[in-house]
Simulated scan of single mutants.
Amino acid sequence: MTNVFKDVAVPPNWDQLADGVLSGTWLTRKEAREILDADELQLLPLLQATFRIRRHYFGRKVKLNMLLNAKSGLCPEDCGYCSQSIVSNAPIPKYALLDRETLLAGAREAYARGAGTFCIVASGRGPSRSETTRIADIVREITTELPLKVCACLGQLTADQASQLQDAGVKRYNHNLNTSSAYHDQVVTTHSYEERLNTLNKVKQAGMSPCSGIIIGMGESLEDRIEMAYALRELDADSIPVNFLHPIPGTPMEGLSPVRPMDGLRMLALLRFVCPDKEIRVAGGRELTLRSLQPLALYAANSIFLGDYLTTSGQEWKKDHEMLEDLGFEVERITPEVSEEWETTLRTIPE
């Protein structure tokens, strides 16, 4: 009798891999590749094992974040994915650093929506001295008034700027690796991969929590994605935002196709196996990439952004709360309140 199953590959035992991670064994690169190669029939068993790791470290809790694009466009960098870069023709708002009242209103809205972290993001290679001082001053106001963690994402920093922000109350600083070291020059040429690492080292030396993540879907290989995961583990980033390329018309990467939902979920699973105790945040492009499978992302990730991103729209934030409630997950902070003031404030931001 012919064995009809003789050529069928035996899938990895995902639970055994999870047991190893939970006992302190590092995932091998061969095992990492098996996760990214898992077929569709293995996705749910993979996510079930991934959730065991996530639940061990974070239970059923989800951290909520909201960001504000505090300075838009006007950037000299040539990042191929970014609508704010010097090589982009995307029709986006362009404005200098927002005033104190608008930044404070943004923080209040983040708190009202239930976020525990408010992210102040500014385009550009790095902040000027005056911009650093202005942001430090508003961070002091925000943290005095609201029980929020403030994360800043302002580009490259000097050691003095990093210390100034930390002294003001910035708890976390974001500076994404974005891609692998080998693929970096295919994404941007106006700064190096090593410069990004240098900024993150200054952040850690100043006493701020390092936040660094990736963008998948920029043409990188699966091996590049594996390298990203291991680089983030070596960096010891406390928070890892996972972005999915949103091919924005007018940018050099406008012609790329969005990542398939299954591939996005496999990458999130890989990061949980490689960086088991870190905050993994599903970030920009999740609505476009994951679509109806967004809830499954929370079986690997333990953090999401509410509302819009830098120059692209996100899911309506109340739907995110509904999604978490339907999943039976617990928001770490408060029950949000509806705020009409924020919509009024948005209309005052110059185009």
Rank of each mutant, 00 (worst) to 15 (best):
L232W: 01
A9R: 12
L47N: 08
H175W: 04
M262V: 12
S292H: 11
S83E: 00
L44H: 15
M1A: 14
Q161E: 15
L64Q: 02
T251M: 01
P93T: 10
V121P: 00
L245E: 06
L200D: 01
C119P: 14
T251K: 02
I215G: 07
T2K: 06
G207V: 10
P258K: 05
G284A: 13
E316S: 10
F58M: 06
Y81E: 08
K63H: 13
R266P: 02
A90D: 10
I135P: 11
G284K: 05
I280A: 04
L265Y: 06
E145Y: 08
K202V: 04
S292T: 14
A283G: 15
M253R: 06
R108A: 07
G219H: 11
W26L: 11
T25Q: 15
R100A: 07
W342L: 12
G126I: 01
G307F: 05
R125N: 06
E220D: 05
A110H: 09
P350H: 02
E340K: 07
H175D: 00
G116N: 10
N302L: 00
S85P: 03
V282I: 14
G126A: 04
V242F: 00
G20C: 08
L245G: 09
R60Q: 14
W342A: 03
L296Y: 13
S130E: 15
P249A: 07
R140T: 12
Y111K: 06
E145C: 08
R272G: 03
I349G: 06
A162M: 13
L293W: 13
S313P: 07
A122M: 09
A18D: 08
E145D: 15
K61C: 05
I86H: 10
S212K: 03
L235N: 02
M218I: 02
Y173L: 00
G24F: 09
R60G: 00
L68R: 06
Y173H: 01
M208S: 04
L43V: 11
T28V: 09
P76Q: 08
D15N: 15
S192T: 15
L67T: 06
G207D: 09
M218A: 07
L148R: 08
M262W: 03
Y111D: 09
E195F: 03
V8Y: 03
Q48F: 01
Y111W: 12
H175A: 00
R125P: 06
L17I: 14
L270R: 04
G307V: 03
M1Q: 04
R260E: 05
A18R: 08
A49M: 01
V338F: 14
K204F: 13
D277L: 02
F244C: 07
V338E: 13
E195Y: 00
S85E: 04
A301T: 01
R52A: 10
V188L: 07
T311G: 13
I86K: 15
Y81S: 03
R266L: 12
R333H: 13
T190K: 11
L46M: 12
S239T: 10
E234V: 07
N65A: 10
P249S: 09
T133M: 08
K202C: 11
E325F: 05
L265H: 09
S209T: 15
A105S: 12
V242W: 01
P295T: 05
E131M: 13
L327D: 02
S239G: 02
L288M: 12
A297Q: 02
V242Q: 01
A49K: 00
D78N: 15
A9Q: 10
R113S: 05
D224N: 03
